[in-house]
């Protein structure tokens, strides 16, 4: 994610090397919530909304 400000997304052929992809001094951000949870209310509402005739 952008928070890590990293640009090297090549395949980690060399795992140990890939683990050093962020050098010391590299800045990052603490991201907000990556994935929110689906609430029980949402689930019930969606279940009803998509059960039959399309809006």
């Amino acid at each position: 994610m952008a928070a890590m400000r990293c640009t090297d997304w090549t395949w980690p052929e060399d795992v140990a090397g890939a683990l050093r992809v962020l050098p010391a001094g590299h800045a990052f951000e603490t991201p907000d919530v990556l994935f929110r949870k689906v609430t029980d209310e949402e689930r019930a509402e969606w279940q009803a909304r998509f059960a039959g005739v399309r809006a």
Partner: peptide
Amino acid sequence: RRRASRSTSSA
């Protein structure tokens, strides 16, 4: 997220 997981793990 692939980037997130990569860079997060690196970090």
